[in-house]
Protein backbone atom coordinates (compact mmCIF):
# COMPACT_ATOMS: atom_id res chain seq x y z
CA UNK A 1 0.00 0.00 0.00
CA UNK A 2 2.74 2.39 1.04
CA UNK A 3 4.64 1.48 -2.11
CA UNK A 4 1.63 2.33 -4.23
CA UNK A 5 1.40 5.77 -2.66
CA UNK A 6 5.13 6.39 -3.12
CA UNK A 7 4.86 5.32 -6.74
CA UNK A 8 1.90 7.64 -7.21
CA UNK A 9 3.78 10.56 -5.68
CA UNK A 10 6.82 10.05 -7.87
CA UNK A 11 4.71 9.75 -11.00
CA UNK A 12 2.62 12.71 -9.84
CA UNK A 13 5.73 14.86 -9.65
CA UNK A 14 6.51 14.12 -13.30
CA UNK A 15 2.91 14.80 -14.32
CA UNK A 16 3.05 18.02 -12.31
CA UNK A 17 5.34 19.48 -14.96
CA UNK A 18 2.71 18.71 -17.56
CA UNK A 19 0.01 20.15 -15.31
CA UNK A 20 1.90 23.42 -15.03
CA UNK A 21 2.07 23.49 -18.83
CA UNK A 22 -1.68 22.99 -19.08
CA UNK A 23 -2.24 25.71 -16.48
CA UNK A 24 -0.27 28.22 -18.58
CA UNK A 25 -2.60 27.81 -21.54
CA UNK A 26 -5.84 26.97 -19.78
CA UNK A 27 -5.75 29.50 -16.96
CA UNK A 28 -3.20 32.16 -17.90
CA UNK A 29 -3.86 32.40 -21.63
CA UNK A 30 -7.49 31.26 -21.37
CA UNK A 31 -7.05 28.78 -24.23
CA UNK A 32 -7.93 25.10 -24.17
CA UNK A 33 -4.87 23.80 -25.99
CA UNK A 34 -5.15 20.26 -27.29
CA UNK A 35 -1.61 20.31 -28.67
CA UNK A 36 -0.52 18.84 -25.36
CA UNK A 37 -1.92 15.43 -26.32
CA UNK A 38 0.61 15.33 -29.12
CA UNK A 39 3.46 17.12 -27.42
CA UNK A 40 3.54 14.85 -24.36
CA UNK A 41 3.92 11.84 -26.65
CA UNK A 42 6.41 13.80 -28.72
CA UNK A 43 8.56 14.42 -25.66
CA UNK A 44 8.47 10.72 -24.90
CA UNK A 45 9.24 9.80 -28.50
CA UNK A 46 12.18 12.17 -28.86
CA UNK A 47 13.74 11.16 -25.54
CA UNK A 48 13.19 7.45 -26.06
CA UNK A 49 14.52 7.41 -29.60
CA UNK A 50 17.58 9.54 -28.79
CA UNK A 51 18.45 7.60 -25.65
CA UNK A 52 17.86 4.30 -27.39
CA UNK A 53 20.37 5.39 -30.00
CA UNK A 54 23.00 6.22 -27.44
CA UNK A 55 22.46 9.91 -26.77
CA UNK A 56 23.16 11.27 -23.32
CA UNK A 57 19.77 11.13 -21.53
CA UNK A 58 20.09 14.71 -20.25
CA UNK A 59 20.68 16.06 -23.74
CA UNK A 60 17.85 13.86 -25.02
CA UNK A 61 15.54 15.35 -22.40
CA UNK A 62 16.50 18.88 -23.42
CA UNK A 63 15.83 17.91 -27.02
CA UNK A 64 12.37 16.72 -26.01
CA UNK A 65 11.74 20.12 -24.40
CA UNK A 66 12.74 21.89 -27.61
CA UNK A 67 10.52 19.55 -29.64
CA UNK A 68 7.53 20.46 -27.49
CA UNK A 69 8.29 24.15 -27.89
CA UNK A 70 8.25 23.72 -31.66
CA UNK A 71 4.86 22.00 -31.44
CA UNK A 72 3.58 24.97 -29.42
CA UNK A 73 5.04 27.33 -31.99
CA UNK A 74 3.11 25.60 -34.78
CA UNK A 75 -0.17 25.84 -32.90
CA UNK A 76 0.60 29.46 -32.03
CA UNK A 77 1.20 30.39 -35.65
CA UNK A 78 -1.88 28.52 -36.83
CA UNK A 79 -3.96 30.36 -34.28
CA UNK A 80 -2.58 33.89 -34.36
CA UNK A 81 -1.21 34.37 -37.85
CA UNK A 82 -3.57 32.10 -39.78
CA UNK A 83 -6.56 32.97 -37.57
CA UNK A 84 -7.61 29.37 -36.92
CA UNK A 85 -9.62 29.08 -33.69
CA UNK A 86 -7.35 27.97 -30.84
CA UNK A 87 -9.15 24.71 -30.17
CA UNK A 88 -8.97 23.69 -33.82
CA UNK A 89 -5.37 24.82 -34.17
CA UNK A 90 -4.46 22.59 -31.23
CA UNK A 91 -6.33 19.64 -32.71
CA UNK A 92 -4.57 20.08 -36.05
CA UNK A 93 -1.13 20.07 -34.44
CA UNK A 94 -2.10 17.15 -32.23
CA UNK A 95 -3.17 15.04 -35.21
CA UNK A 96 -0.09 16.03 -37.18
CA UNK A 97 2.11 15.11 -34.24
CA UNK A 98 0.70 11.60 -34.21
CA UNK A 99 2.38 10.98 -37.56
CA UNK A 100 5.46 12.97 -36.60
CA UNK A 101 5.89 10.92 -33.44
CA UNK A 102 5.57 7.67 -35.40
CA UNK A 103 8.27 8.97 -37.72
CA UNK A 104 10.51 9.86 -34.81
CA UNK A 105 10.24 6.47 -33.12
CA UNK A 106 9.89 4.48 -36.33
CA UNK A 107 7.28 2.30 -34.63
CA UNK A 108 4.41 2.54 -32.18
CA UNK A 109 6.45 1.94 -29.05
CA UNK A 110 9.99 1.74 -27.84
CA UNK A 111 11.41 0.06 -24.74
CA UNK A 112 14.21 1.59 -22.69
CA UNK A 113 14.71 -1.40 -20.39
CA UNK A 114 18.25 -1.66 -19.06
CA UNK A 115 19.24 1.57 -20.77
CA UNK A 116 20.58 4.49 -18.76
CA UNK A 117 18.14 7.38 -18.24
CA UNK A 118 18.30 10.67 -16.35
CA UNK A 119 17.34 8.69 -13.25
CA UNK A 120 20.29 6.27 -13.48
CA UNK A 121 22.88 8.53 -11.77
CA UNK A 122 20.63 8.77 -8.70
CA UNK A 123 20.01 5.04 -8.72
CA UNK A 124 23.77 4.55 -8.83
CA UNK A 125 23.94 6.50 -5.59
CA UNK A 126 21.88 3.75 -4.02
CA UNK A 127 18.33 5.11 -4.39
CA UNK A 128 15.53 2.76 -5.37
CA UNK A 129 14.04 3.48 -8.83
CA UNK A 130 10.95 5.02 -7.24
CA UNK A 131 12.99 7.20 -4.91
CA UNK A 132 15.27 8.24 -7.75
CA UNK A 133 12.24 9.40 -9.77
CA UNK A 134 10.84 11.13 -6.72
CA UNK A 135 14.04 13.03 -5.96
CA UNK A 136 14.67 13.96 -9.57
CA UNK A 137 11.01 14.90 -10.03
CA UNK A 138 11.00 17.00 -6.89
CA UNK A 139 14.13 18.93 -7.88
CA UNK A 140 12.89 19.53 -11.43
CA UNK A 141 9.45 20.62 -10.31
CA UNK A 142 10.84 23.02 -7.73
CA UNK A 143 13.25 24.48 -10.30
CA UNK A 144 10.39 24.95 -12.78
CA UNK A 145 8.09 26.48 -10.16
CA UNK A 146 10.86 28.91 -9.20
CA UNK A 147 11.61 29.82 -12.79
CA UNK A 148 7.98 30.37 -13.71
CA UNK A 149 7.32 32.37 -10.56
CA UNK A 150 10.12 34.66 -11.62
CA UNK A 151 9.14 34.70 -15.29
CA UNK A 152 5.51 35.65 -14.77
CA UNK A 153 6.64 38.53 -12.61
CA UNK A 154 8.77 40.02 -15.38
CA UNK A 155 7.57 42.56 -17.92
CA UNK A 156 7.12 39.88 -20.57
CA UNK A 157 5.44 37.51 -18.11
CA UNK A 158 3.02 40.24 -17.04
CA UNK A 159 2.30 40.96 -20.71
CA UNK A 160 1.37 37.29 -21.23
CA UNK A 161 -0.94 37.38 -18.22
CA UNK A 162 -2.58 40.59 -19.42
CA UNK A 163 -3.07 39.03 -22.86
CA UNK A 164 -4.92 36.08 -21.36
CA UNK A 165 -6.92 38.29 -19.03
CA UNK A 166 -8.04 41.00 -21.47
CA UNK A 167 -6.47 41.01 -24.93
CA UNK A 168 -8.15 44.28 -25.88
CA UNK A 169 -6.66 46.05 -22.91
CA UNK A 170 -3.30 44.42 -23.58
CA UNK A 171 -3.21 45.78 -27.12
CA UNK A 172 -4.25 49.20 -25.86
CA UNK A 173 -1.19 49.05 -23.58
CA UNK A 174 1.06 48.31 -26.53
CA UNK A 175 1.35 44.56 -26.04
CA UNK A 176 1.69 42.40 -29.15
CA UNK A 177 -0.93 39.89 -28.06
CA UNK A 178 -0.21 37.49 -30.93
CA UNK A 179 3.40 37.12 -29.90
CA UNK A 180 2.43 36.66 -26.26
CA UNK A 181 -0.01 33.88 -27.16
CA UNK A 182 2.67 32.17 -29.23
CA UNK A 183 5.22 32.51 -26.42
CA UNK A 184 2.78 31.07 -23.89
CA UNK A 185 2.01 28.10 -26.13
CA UNK A 186 5.72 27.52 -26.73
CA UNK A 187 6.56 27.45 -23.01
CA UNK A 188 3.51 25.36 -22.17
CA UNK A 189 4.18 22.67 -24.76
CA UNK A 190 7.89 22.64 -23.96
CA UNK A 191 7.01 21.77 -20.37
CA UNK A 192 4.48 19.17 -21.47
CA UNK A 193 7.03 17.46 -23.71
CA UNK A 194 9.60 17.60 -20.94
CA UNK A 195 7.10 15.89 -18.69
CA UNK A 196 6.43 13.27 -21.38
CA UNK A 197 10.13 12.56 -21.78
CA UNK A 198 10.58 12.04 -18.03
CA UNK A 199 7.47 9.86 -17.78
CA UNK A 200 8.77 7.66 -20.60
CA UNK A 201 12.17 7.34 -18.94
CA UNK A 202 10.66 6.54 -15.55
CA UNK A 203 8.56 3.72 -17.02
CA UNK A 204 11.33 2.70 -19.47
CA UNK A 205 8.80 2.83 -22.23
CA UNK A 206 7.51 5.28 -24.83
CA UNK A 207 4.21 4.72 -26.57
CA UNK A 208 2.58 6.59 -29.42
CA UNK A 209 -0.74 6.40 -27.54
CA UNK A 210 0.47 7.87 -24.29
CA UNK A 211 -0.92 11.34 -25.02
CA UNK A 212 -4.51 10.25 -25.40
CA UNK A 213 -6.59 11.82 -22.68
CA UNK A 214 -3.65 13.68 -21.20
CA UNK A 215 -5.38 17.07 -21.54
CA UNK A 216 -8.16 15.76 -19.33
CA UNK A 217 -5.65 14.46 -16.79
CA UNK A 218 -3.95 17.86 -16.84
CA UNK A 219 -7.24 19.68 -16.32
CA UNK A 220 -8.26 17.29 -13.56
CA UNK A 221 -4.97 17.97 -11.79
CA UNK A 222 -5.34 21.74 -12.21
CA UNK A 223 -8.87 21.72 -10.82
CA UNK A 224 -8.12 19.32 -7.95
CA UNK A 225 -5.12 21.44 -7.02
CA UNK A 226 -7.01 24.72 -7.13
CA UNK A 227 -10.00 23.43 -5.20
CA UNK A 228 -8.10 21.60 -2.47
CA UNK A 229 -4.94 23.64 -2.10
CA UNK A 230 -6.11 27.14 -2.98
CA UNK A 231 -5.20 29.99 -5.32
CA UNK A 232 -4.33 32.78 -2.93
CA UNK A 233 -1.43 34.07 -5.00
CA UNK A 234 0.59 32.91 -7.96
CA UNK A 235 3.12 30.98 -5.90
CA UNK A 236 0.33 29.27 -4.03
CA UNK A 237 -1.24 28.42 -7.42
CA UNK A 238 1.92 26.79 -8.70
CA UNK A 239 2.33 24.70 -5.56
CA UNK A 240 -1.36 23.76 -5.74
CA UNK A 241 -0.84 22.49 -9.28
CA UNK A 242 1.98 20.23 -8.15
CA UNK A 243 -0.04 18.93 -5.22
CA UNK A 244 -3.06 18.55 -7.49
CA UNK A 245 -1.10 16.40 -9.93
CA UNK A 246 0.15 14.23 -7.08
CA UNK A 247 -3.33 13.97 -5.54
CA UNK A 248 -4.75 12.92 -8.89
CA UNK A 249 -2.16 10.14 -9.15
CA UNK A 250 -2.90 8.97 -5.63
CA UNK A 251 -6.64 8.92 -6.31
CA UNK A 252 -6.08 6.90 -9.47
CA UNK A 253 -3.74 4.49 -7.69
CA UNK A 254 -6.33 3.98 -4.95
CA UNK A 255 -9.32 3.42 -7.22
CA UNK A 256 -7.28 0.92 -9.23
CA UNK A 257 -6.26 -0.76 -6.03
CA UNK A 258 -9.91 -0.93 -5.00
CA UNK A 259 -10.54 -2.95 -8.12
CA UNK A 260 -11.63 -0.53 -10.82
CA UNK A 261 -10.63 -1.97 -14.21
CA UNK A 262 -7.80 0.05 -15.74
CA UNK A 263 -9.80 0.37 -18.95
CA UNK A 264 -12.41 2.47 -17.15
CA UNK A 265 -9.82 4.97 -15.99
CA UNK A 266 -10.39 7.50 -18.75
CA UNK A 267 -14.14 7.41 -18.25
CA UNK A 268 -13.59 7.96 -14.55
CA UNK A 269 -11.28 10.90 -15.16
CA UNK A 270 -13.57 12.47 -17.74
CA UNK A 271 -16.55 12.27 -15.39
CA UNK A 272 -14.49 13.76 -12.56
CA UNK A 273 -13.43 16.70 -14.71
CA UNK A 274 -16.96 17.21 -16.07
CA UNK A 275 -18.28 17.41 -12.52
CA UNK A 276 -15.50 19.72 -11.39
CA UNK A 277 -15.98 22.06 -14.37
CA UNK A 278 -19.73 22.22 -13.82
CA UNK A 279 -19.44 22.99 -10.12
CA UNK A 280 -20.11 26.72 -10.66
CA UNK A 281 -23.43 25.83 -12.35
CA UNK A 282 -24.44 23.61 -9.47
CA UNK A 283 -23.48 26.32 -7.03
CA UNK A 284 -25.88 28.77 -8.65
CA UNK A 285 -28.63 26.17 -8.31
CA UNK A 286 -27.69 25.37 -4.78
CA UNK A 287 -27.54 28.95 -3.54
CA UNK A 288 -31.28 29.69 -3.83
CA UNK A 289 -31.94 26.27 -2.39
CA UNK A 290 -29.78 27.03 0.62
CA UNK A 291 -31.47 30.38 0.94
CA UNK A 292 -34.94 28.91 1.00
CA UNK A 293 -33.83 26.23 3.44
CA UNK A 294 -32.55 28.90 5.75
CA UNK A 295 -35.80 30.73 5.33
CA UNK A 296 -34.15 34.14 5.27
CA UNK A 297 -33.84 36.48 2.35
CA UNK A 298 -30.11 36.99 2.62
Amino acid sequence: MFDIILGAISLGLLWAIMTIGVYITYRILDIADLTVEGSIAMGAAIAAFSIFNGMNPFIATCLAFVGGMLAGLVTGILHTKLKIPALLAGILTMIALYSVNLRIMGKANLSLLRIDTVFTPLENLGLSPTNAVMLFGFISVMAIVGLLYWFFGTEIGCAIRATGDNPQMARAQGINTNNMIILGLVISNGLVALSGSLIAQSQSFADIQMGIGSIVIGLASVIIGEVIFGTRNFFNCLISLVLGAITYRIIIALVLKMGMPANDLKLFTAITVAIALSLPVFKTYLRPLKKSLRGGDL
Binding site: G153, T154, E155, I156, C158, A159, G174, I175
Partner: peptide, 12 residues
Protein backbone atom coordinates in the same frame (compact mmCIF):
# COMPACT_ATOMS: atom_id res chain seq x y z
CA UNK B 1 5.41 50.34 -20.05
CA UNK B 2 3.24 51.37 -22.97
CA UNK B 3 5.46 52.08 -25.94
CA UNK B 4 8.51 50.47 -24.38
CA UNK B 5 9.98 47.12 -25.43
CA UNK B 6 9.19 44.69 -22.66
CA UNK B 7 12.10 42.72 -21.24
CA UNK B 8 12.84 40.17 -18.56
CA UNK B 9 13.32 42.79 -15.88
CA UNK B 10 10.75 42.92 -13.08
CA UNK B 11 7.25 43.78 -14.18
CA UNK B 12 7.00 46.37 -11.41
Amino acid sequence: RRGKTRSLSWGI
